[in-house]
Simulated scan of single mutants.
Amino acid sequence: MNLRLQPVQIATGSPDGESQLVFNEGFLVAVLVRLSDLHGDKVGMWFLEAGFGRVNDPDPPLFADLDEAEAWIMSRLA
């Protein structure tokens, strides 16, 4: 399994615009958004804005960094 991340800016309507599209084997499986200082002690963490297929989660998690997010996504796809 090989994940590929592509940085993008997303118009969320908030300061949380820094994002990553996550692809697996050419398919978009997730959109991660980095939390701005608007989120207090969670600033800099990554939020699962959208997950597709097995990466979809009704209670989207937060990740300390992109490595943690990638590991979680890979576990969902395994």
Results as ranks from 00 to 15, higher is better:
Asn56Lys: 11
Ala78Met: 10
His39Met: 01
Arg4Cys: 13
Ser75Pro: 09
Gln9Leu: 15
Gly53Ser: 14
Leu5Asp: 06
Gly51Ala: 09
Leu32Gly: 04
Glu25Thr: 14
Arg4Glu: 15
Val29Ser: 05
Gly53Ile: 15
Gln6Cys: 14
Arg54Gly: 12
Asp59Thr: 15
Arg34Gly: 00
Asp41Pro: 14
Pro61Gly: 09
Leu3Phe: 03
Pro15Thr: 12
Leu66Gly: 11
Gly51Ile: 02
His39Leu: 01
Gly51Asn: 07
Gly26Met: 10
Ala11Asn: 13
Asp41Cys: 08
Glu25Val: 14
Phe63Pro: 01
Phe52Gln: 12
Phe27Pro: 03
Pro61Leu: 10
Leu48Val: 05
Val43Tyr: 04
Gly40Ser: 09
Leu21Gly: 04
Leu66Asp: 06
Ala64Cys: 06
Glu49Gln: 13
Gly51Arg: 02
Ala71Asp: 12
Val33His: 01
Asp59Ala: 14
Ser19Val: 04
Leu3Ala: 05
Leu62Val: 13
Phe27His: 15
Arg76Pro: 05
Gly44Glu: 04
Asp41Val: 12
Asn2Leu: 11
Arg34Thr: 00
Ile73Trp: 01
Arg34Pro: 00
Asn56Ser: 09
Ser75Glu: 15
Ala64Phe: 01
Phe63Met: 07
Val43Asn: 07
Trp46Asp: 01
Gly44His: 04
Glu49Lys: 08
Asp59Ser: 14
Ala71Ile: 08
Leu21Arg: 11
Pro7Ile: 07
Ala50Lys: 08
Val55Ile: 07
Met45Asp: 00
Pro60Gln: 09
Leu28Trp: 14
Ser19Lys: 01
Pro60Arg: 09
Gly17Lys: 09
Ser75Arg: 15
Thr12Ser: 10
Asp41Tyr: 08
Phe63Tyr: 09
Glu68Cys: 04
Trp72Ser: 01
Leu32Asp: 06
Glu25Lys: 14
Arg76Leu: 07
Pro58Val: 06
Met1Thr: 10
Leu66His: 12
Trp72Arg: 00
Val43Glu: 13
Phe27Trp: 13
Ala78Gly: 08
Lys42Ser: 11
Pro58Phe: 07
Asp59His: 13
Arg54Lys: 15
Gly26Pro: 04
Phe52Cys: 06
Met45Thr: 03
Pro60Cys: 09
Ala11Lys: 13
Arg34Leu: 00
Glu18Phe: 01
Met1Gln: 10
Asp59Met: 14
Phe23Tyr: 15
Arg76Gln: 14
Glu68Val: 05
Ala64Leu: 05
Gln9Trp: 11
Pro7Cys: 07
Val8Leu: 13
Gly13Met: 04
Pro58Thr: 03
Val29Pro: 03
Pro7Lys: 11
Pro15Cys: 11
Asp16Asn: 04
Ala50Gly: 05
Val22Met: 11
Asn24Pro: 09
Phe63Glu: 02
Gly44Asn: 05
Asp65Trp: 00
